[in-house]
Amino acid sequence: MIPSLALTAVAVLAIILLLLSGRDDECEERAAKGQVRQQTPQDNVQPAGLVRRIFSLEDRDFIRGIQSRELQGLFLDERRKVALHWVRQTTGEVREIMKRHRLISRQSANLDAGAEVKLFFRYAEIRFLCGTLALLVRVFGPHVLVNLAAHTSEVYQRMGRSLPKVASVSPGNLAAS
């Protein structure tokens, strides 16, 4: 167990040292000169309408109505690019928010380690979601989540229709019988 732990430690240490040796101090320099962009909560607000429009089925259904395969292909290709751009932009903003937080909190004498750990996990969660979304959009197209939600809803409704009696049995009925 110890040798494998040792080899892992050496490997990780080597990777980190490599990263460290290649790291430039540009970010630190900017921070030292106080040039970190001041970001307000309003900066990352995007209209919900825009997001819904990018990922919704409305435009796709309209293009389908024209019944041109070429146009449909072009539309899906373009919409995929727009969706991926949006995901990348969101990832970039989250990274920027976290970077700003780190650069300021590193100087706070009253830093709360627990709060930092929670924020880190929230950050990791968002990055994971963005990564998964980007992968899904790249592989299945921009309407994957809507299709998935619609499919789930349909399956749920079908199950509800096929089990009317079970659904109508309430705890009160059971108690009475």
Partner: peptide, 13 residues
Amino acid sequence: QFRRTLARLGWVV
């Protein structure tokens, strides 16, 4: 800001 971003990701669904 994280909460808003998560909400935005929720709009996608």
